[in-house]
């Protein structure tokens, strides 16, 4: 029982927070873009988190401000994971040909810091696209590497040999037989890819490459609300807390997945 609960808490809360963030806009009590109070109003019963620089409701903006950020981060993480797993499986299964190419490419990409990559890309691409491409370029090689290593260790298992002997196609064996064995590893990797993507998306938005005003966005709100930190600190904390929470939950989920895989508690 304890085992089960310990297992489910982090992923469960993460799922709840992400769902809330993605649907938040419909729950917002006010129009997140409409000024409703004096700029930098302190929290009150009408406005639990007070108002921002334009006098907009911070609560409504926090509720509406996660969807885009998390959407971009999820897309980026998913893309990095898919490409990384595909490359890793290929590299582990055909170490001679694919393995060498993937290693060489990975070494090249990992030499570049993800943030610098994202900033360079942001000059040419829209912010969201830059996050996705940078997350893939910096994350996929890491995923590919661990997947390839794991793949190489199970490659000689009897059940895989059996599948190959049955005459099944290589790709089918990879997906149907090998991938399930890597489930825990991939689950742990999701969390890490997501944290990186979240960091990149936040950084670019804070630097002004992401969503543009008046769009509500947690990361953008950080820079928008900083000048009023002394007048309404809640306006700064309100988007910072869910951002930090998301990152923590991703990390916790990754750890849970790792423990589950390794049977460590």
């Amino acid at each position: 029982m304890t085992r089960l609960r310990g297992n489910a808490v982090a992923p469960g809360v993460a799922l709840a927070v992400f769902t809330l963030a993605l649907l938040g806009r419909s729950l917002a009590p006010n129009d997140p873009e409409q000024p409703v109070a004096v700029p930098w109003s302190a929290p009150s019963t009408q406005l639990p988190f007070g108002a921002d620089a334009l006098g907009r409701d911070v609560l409504s903006r926090v509720l509406a401000g996660g969807a885009n950020l998390l959407g971009v981060a999820l897309t980026a993480a998913a893309a990095a994971l898919l490409i990384g797993v595909a490359l890793g499986l290929a590299a582990g299964w055909w170490p001679a040909r694919a393995g060498r190419a993937v290693r060489w490419l990975g070494d090249l990409l990992l030499a570049m810091p993800a943030l610098v990559l994202a900033l360079v890309l942001a000059v040419a691409l829209p912010g969201a696209a830059a996050v996705v491409v940078a997350a893939v370029l910096s994350g996929a090689p890491l995923t590919a590497r661990v997947v390839a290593a794991q793949c190489a260790t199970v490659r000689d298992s009897g059940y895989l040999h059996a599948a190959v002997e049955r005459g099944e196609h290589g790709a089918v064996v990879l997906i149907r037989e090998l991938l399930p064995a890597l489930r825990g590893l991939v689950a742990a990797d999701v969390g890490l890819r997501l944290i990186t993507a979240l960091q990149l998306a936040t950084t670019l938005a804070v630097l002004g490459f992401g969503p543009q005003p008046p769009d509500p966005d947690w990361a953008l709100m950080l820079s928008e609300n900083l000048p009023g930190a002394a007048l309404n600190p809640t306006a700064l904390l309100a988007p910072a807390v869910p951002l930090a929470l998301c990152a923590l939950l991703c990390a916790a989920t990754a750890r849970t997945a790792t423990r589950e895989r390794e049977g460590v508690w």
């Binding site: 873009e33 409409q34 620089a53 334009l54 928008e224 000048p227």
Partner: peptide
């Protein structure tokens, strides 16, 4: 831009 405090706020509010 954000060179001077409120330049971005001014644009956002005027746009509204």
């Amino acid at each position: 831009t954000t060179s001077y405090p409120g330049m971005d706020t001014a644009a956002t509010l005027w746009a509204r």
